[in-house]
């Protein structure tokens, strides 16, 4: 099932110049794996060396933070979205 992915413009050079694209996966877990297999530099900017999500990065699946999900084995359905955001900070 195709999943729409949106990334911040500052990271577009990690994804061949795109900020909005789709990947095909059966589950959210597979979607994340395919996303970072396809665009490994994206993973460098979202996770540090210890594989922790960087402090000021948020990954939302249909508006819900992936970090707060109990598990990632969630089926992907038509119209699902994965959105990467910079956490609001400062200002």
């Amino acid at each position: 099932m195709p999943l729409e992915v949106r990334i911040p413009p500052m990271l577009r050079d990690c994804a061949s110049g795109q900020t909005r694209f789709s990947i095909t996966a059966g589950t959210l877990e597979e979607a994340l794996r395919r996303l970072f297999e396809t665009y490994p530099l994206l993973q460098v900017h979202l996770y540090d060396e210890t594989q922790r999500l960087r402090q000021h990065v948020l990954i939302f699946f249909n508006g819900e933070s992936v970090a707060r999900l109990d598990h990632l084995d969630i089926p992907v359905r038509t119209g699902d979205q994965l959105t990467i955001l910079q956490a609001v900070s400062g200002g």
Partner: peptide, 8 residues
């Protein structure tokens, strides 16, 4: 580098 997205 970037406060949110780290270095390269």
């Amino acid at each position: 580098s970037h406060m949110a997205y780290g270095p390269s």
